[in-house]
Design a protein around this nucleic acid. Structure first.
Lengths: 343, 343
DNA sequence: GTGAAAGCGCTAACAT
DNA sequence: ATGTTAGCGCTTTCAC
């Protein structure tokens, strides 16, 4: 009907939302003034700001973030690469990150590698196409090509979970020390025939680091350090299965050091179903520090790390850097051995 | 040194990556041909495609997704709004979504409302600025302004978790029926003094729907349906606390119908620590169907729903629609009552 | 404090 | 099968 209104200039598909120009026309200013009123309100006169705000409300303006990102060559996206979401540890890390990012107006882009370094590289290459503001990825080991790419990434980069020579910033804990700490505990409790039970150690190499620490201490004590490994994801029910298989292959086993609390708890409950006494017949230790392991009877001996803090601290490093401050480059969040009655 | 190389045309900041034009120059074709070779390889001659691929590799081209999205007025982003990541249910839904989206080249944008409808509206308004391809949000209830906005969203929209009159597509289960089913079970087992124990029911209204179903059945059976509510997130340790408080306020309580397995399991283990016999002294029921509840002794009676399937199906609805097929508009994933020995 | 002009890197539309 | 042209909606730069 009214050809002047709306116009027929926009020929493309899409959401066809009002633009900065529509707001500008409505407010009787130029589009750049609208942009300023939105992003740096102090840089425009109050009367102008009010006109603009009224116009925004009237036309129902929603900023087009895509156009903004293209023009400024920077989005407010921060990709976060984790190996798994089946493991609560990473979910808690993500929550820590998200809480901070939300507060500062950054949007997380979640990538799940399923413990594949090749997938990590693919994901990061794709994410780089979104002009990310910063990057968070898990671990210090990457495909060679990816390391080279990341070295040239001119924005904040945090490698999380483990500690070591990082490309930029780093927050995590020492997994080898954690494995050693648990081994020391088991030795001190008098166990001599100790088996380490893990899953997918070739890809979940932080678990392998814990085993390495464990093994070092056992061997120093003159003990063998047998390992049993399952080639599937750690899972609650796998714990009970693993218990059976460990006892079958190692008839004299006195203690099992599990790769995480999920399997350890499954094993503990499985042992009880079979009428085994924990720790007298079999001692069980975990890793992670999950609440339900600590509520079992006997309570599960485990190692806990501040997971949500890893996320929070990684986000703070990034935000500090982006806001011109000079954050710590490496943060050791530490860990704590929680003694229960399961060992 | 060499001023011709690199050039000084790009004056802006940013990642300064090679562009389509750089690839085109290298390959001796036009930029649109490069674009075609990337997106519709069949539309260019094989020799051309090979030249382009070589050029891409040589210059290390990474497509600028931001520019592509602006030009096409559509990103490959699909926002997914959930109320919480502390609840495994939503994590599993997200995994189901992500697996499908990954396969089809869509990128999830995760938003966490913390059970706030106002936050939901803010998040979605922001996400709309990213020209999303589709949208997934939790629940059928939204702020009025948001519902109006979503009704006009011209792309696939799925409301997940519960069933009812949806704005576009819908996948979930009937929570009222689930609550009723558990109530029926408890009544059939002979319990008469049954308490429903929940958290934050005003915002977690699907839990409130389960209580409503529960209450209907109890009242039909001539029983009272007392409710106890805690105003914090459901948490493992809260289960044991809740058990104590329910028993204090309802001395004759025979069974507790918990809002979820996390609290129910915490209560079950708490009961055992106190030397209470489950279910003789107190029967305990949950909701969710988590593996560890099913491994306790006695096994937790609960209701399980296919959570990962909700994610997978929601993603399929979207992808079907985007690819021109005509998916089911409403999918009931159903639920199953899993009887354990805890009731 | 405000504006005009010039792109950001890509894809849609219309050639050829 | 390939190229030319004209934007997408915003921010940067440089003027006033």
């Amino acid at each position: 009907m009214n050809e002047t209104q709306g116009g027929d200039r926009r020929r493309r598909k899409g959401l066809d939302n009002p633009t900065l120009d529509d707001v500008a026309r409505e407010a009787g200013v130029s589009s750049i003034t609208v942009s300023r009123a939105i992003h740096r309100p102090d840089s425009v006169r109050e009367t102008t700001r009010n006109k603009v705000e009224a116009a925004i409300a009237k036309v129902g303006y929603v900023p087009n973030m895509v156009a903004g990102s293209l023009a400024s060559a920077s989005s407010r996206f921060i990709p976060v690469i984790v190996p798994s979401l089946s493991n609560v540890v990473f979910v808690e890390v993500i929550q820590g990150l998200q809480a901070q990012f939300d507060q500062h107006g950054y949007q997380m882009l979640l990538g799940n590698t399923d413990y594949s370094m090749q997938r990590e590289e693919e994901l990061i290459r794709t994410f780089l196409g979104w002009s990310p503001t910063a990057l968070v990825t898990t671990g210090l080991r990457h495909q060679p090509g990816l390391s080279a790419l990341l070295e040239r990434f001119p924005r904040p980069l945090v490698e999380i979970m483990e500690l070591g020579p990082a490309l930029d910033m780093n927050v995590g804990m020492d997994h080898e020390k954690a494995g050693a700490a648990m081994a020391d505990h088991l030795i001190a409790r008098g166990y001599r025939h100790i088996v380490f039970a893990g899953t997918r150690l070739e890809s979940n190499y932080r678990a392998a680091q814990r085993y390495a620490g464990h093994r070092t201490r056992l061997e120093k004590a003159g003990l063998a350090a047998p390992l049993m490994e399952w080639h599937q994801d750690s899972h609650f029910d796998l714990g009970a299965t693993a218990l059976d298989e460990v006892r079958r292959h190692h008839p004299g086993v006195e203690a099992i050091h599990f790769v995480d609390d999920v399997m350890a708890s499954g094993a503990l409950l499985g042992a009880q179903r079979q009428g085994l006494r924990v720790p007298d017949d079999i001692a069980i230790a975990g890793f992670t520090g999950l609440p339900f392991g600590r509520s079992l009877m006997p309570r599960l001996t485990t190692i806990s790390s501040p997971r949500e803090a890893i996320g929070r601290l990684a986000a703070s490093q990034i935000i500090d850097r982006l806001e011109g401050r000079d954050p710590e480059r490496q943060i050791d969040v530490g860990f704590a051995l929680l003694e229960g009655e399961s060992t």
